[in-house]
Amino acid sequence: MFRQTIRAVSKVNRVNAVRTYAEAASSLKLSFSMPHDTIFTNKEVTQVNVPALSGDMGILANHVPIVEQLKPGVVEILEGSNSSKFFISGGFVSVLPDSKISITSVEAFPLDAFDKSSVKTLLAEAQKNAASSDELVAAEASIEVEVLEALNTALP
């Protein structure tokens, strides 16, 4: 009787200890939010690629917990073979210990919502303003240039 129980217990232990393939492939729970809108809450996804300040990174399930700042760029969300791309204006990504990932950004739009030609005209204007003698205008324009350049390279 006792032996049986012990065996059962040890079996349970073994199952827990061995990280199975299915577990490793378990999905990330993504929350993607803006101050004024929420794009995803606890959505199961396979992989998320984010433009972190320290370099672009891809995040899979069971990633080590991190907090990273994001620069303007493309967030790519992969669910199985589907991928959706959003352009964000910068923000934060945090991965929590239980494979929860949350992306917060002040603004985010689907990549196909942008028009390449208007991005180019805006970029030209911003580059002109960045050379302005007015410090405030120049500072604002240089931020614009950074965002627009990222957007320009992201667009096909």
Binding site: S31, S33, M34, H36, D37, T38, F92, S94, S102, T104
Partner: peptide, 13 residues
């Protein structure tokens, strides 16, 4: 509601 969701990631951290 959306501001609550937005703040949640901070609070989780």
């Amino acid at each position: 509601t959306s501001s609550r969701v937005y703040q949640e990631s901070d609070l989780d951290f």
